Amino acid sequence: MYDFSKVIEKSPPQLEFEDFFTSLKSLCAVRKGKPGQKFNLEQSDKRLCFILFSGTGLVKRVNDSLVLSTIHGPCIVGLQDIFHVKSDVQVSSTSEVEYSLVVASDLFSWAEEKGLWKNMCYMLMLSSTRFSEYQKETVGVSNYELICNLLYSLNKESFEIRATTTALEYIQTRSMLSRSGIMKTLSSLRIGGYITISKGLLIKINSLPKKF
């Protein structure tokens, strides 16, 4: 899935991010949040940016709660849809987090004042690159390929997520596939020895066939 950290780990401009987020703390107060908190990106008709300094969360589509991405601090959510009339995403924390909510226009003014537009552009370029990968994984693929991609994604998640989220739940919240269709495919893969599942949790991917 759209995991911002996958790109950061393979990209060189680490210093750009460190400077950017260190400086950001002078703009906004850093708050602490608990797992399960939800954050809307609008307040009093003003567009907000969610700044995640540490911790993990999910970005969900507002109209149907479809999970669009997993995020790890440090990152920013809210710049990607700034030209929409209303924000179409919501953030929910999956761990304890350190975060801030900043009015988008204030963030732009701050970047201009501090000369940090280049740093912000790196953030957007990385988001754009990873979103392109997300589209390759989810758009124009068969239902089976989508399930496989999401199984691989689940397998790369943190231990906490893998230990508390069933494969069915993970796939269903990140796709428009039916519950029965997902269960049928998972059952067939388990019986065939391609995956190991215990109490609904993905334990191991042995080898997923290209076609099934």
Rank of each mutant, 00 (worst) to 15 (best):
K114D: 04
S142V: 07
S142H: 10
F17P: 00
K184F: 13
D88G: 05
T173P: 07
A29P: 13
Q90K: 11
S93C: 04
R130G: 13
E16Q: 09
K25W: 03
G55R: 02
R174H: 02
I203M: 14
S127V: 12
E9G: 09
L186H: 07
V103S: 01
K184V: 13
A104Y: 06
S180P: 04
V97G: 00
S44D: 15
V141A: 03
K32Y: 10
L154A: 04
R179S: 12
E16N: 09
V141P: 03
V139G: 04
I71Y: 00
T22R: 14
L154Q: 05
S109Q: 10
M176E: 15
E157Q: 13
S132K: 12
K118Y: 11
Y152K: 13
R190D: 14
L58Q: 08
M176S: 15
L177I: 09
S153K: 07
S65F: 04
L124G: 05
C148V: 07
K156M: 12
V97T: 00
L52D: 11
K199W: 03
S132Y: 15
A111C: 06
E112V: 06
S87Q: 03
S95D: 02
I76S: 06
D88R: 07
L41G: 08
S65A: 04
Y170N: 06
L79Y: 01
T166H: 06
E133T: 13
E169T: 11
I195H: 08
A163R: 11
L48H: 11
R47S: 04
M125L: 15
S198W: 11
F39E: 07
I8R: 15
I195C: 09
F131H: 14
E145H: 08
D106V: 03
L58V: 02
W110F: 05
R47I: 04
I147A: 03
D106F: 05
E98I: 06
L58C: 06
V62C: 04
F108Q: 07
N40Y: 15
Y152T: 10
M123L: 13
F20L: 01
K136M: 13
L168A: 09
L186V: 02
F159N: 12
R130S: 14
S93H: 02
I8F: 14
A104L: 05
D45E: 15
W110T: 02
S5T: 12
V91H: 00
G192Y: 05
L189P: 08
G55H: 02
H84E: 14
N206R: 14
K118L: 08
L168W: 10
A111M: 01
E145G: 05
S109N: 12
L24P: 03
F159S: 11
K34L: 12
I161D: 01
